[in-house]
């Protein structure tokens, strides 16, 4: 084999290997959508509540909203997602609330349990409540991209800045990653 043939063959094999790697990585790493449509979504187990969802979405009020996995909630009186750390009184006074827009609502259920709901028209997706709930509670509050609001940009401006690569394209058939239904790939220790 002369040098020209050697170089040509090597180039062909390198190209073929590259193509196979690309195809394989797409096939194994990305879930395939039956309809061929994909949307952006946040993996709640990767999210670090950096605040970028509130500041980087192209919409005036972010398409990222806090959602609540009620099955995981402890319905706590002292809710780490609702109250500022070290708040002195557990009431709905604005000075006690962690949410900067008052989007997290607290409702008495029965002694000593309270239900927490999110007013999505007020929520800016900042993740303060998520940070508090994840740090001090059960982590039932988490962020999700709401697809009735998301413009499904070709390049999501939040995903580009997300420090933990928590935002990826997912098949439209499984457009949400709700905690409780959705589990991380590797379960965390209890």
């Amino acid at each position: 084999m002369n040098r020209k043939n050697f170089l040509t063959n090597t180039g062909r094999w390198v190209l073929l290997g590259g193509l196979m790697y690309l195809t394989g990585s797409i096939f194994f790493k990305r879930k395939v959508s039956a309809s061929g449509k994909y949307v952006w979504q946040i993996d709640p187990f990767k999210c670090t509540q950096c605040g970028r969802c509130a500041t980087s979405c192209v919409r005036d009020l972010s398409a990222v909203k806090c959602v609540h996995a009620y099955s995981l909630c402890g319905y706590c009186d002292l809710c780490g997602g609702y109250f500022k750390p070290n708040t002195l009184s557990l009431n709905t006074g604005a000075e006690n609330q962690l949410c900067p827009t008052g989007a997290l609502k607290r409702k008495y259920i029965e002694e000593p349990f309270f239900e927490y709901t999110i007013d999505e028209e007020l929520c800016n997706g900042c993740g303060k409540c998520v940070k508090g709930c994840t740090s001090f509670g059960n982590g039932s509050l988490h962020l999700q991209i709401r697809h009735n609001l998301c413009q499904n940009c070709n390049e999501c401006s939040i995903a580009r800045l997300c420090p933990s690569d928590a935002i990826t394209r997912v098949p439209v058939e499984t457009a949400y990653k709700i905690k409780g239904d959705f589990k991380p790939a590797i379960a965390k220790p209890q």
Partner: peptide, 15 residues
């Protein structure tokens, strides 16, 4: 988007 170039989180809860 380097980590050390990002602005601080304006919504940090100050833990």
């Amino acid at each position: 988007n380097r980590t050390d170039l990002r602005p601080d989180n304006p919504y940090d809860i100050g833990l």
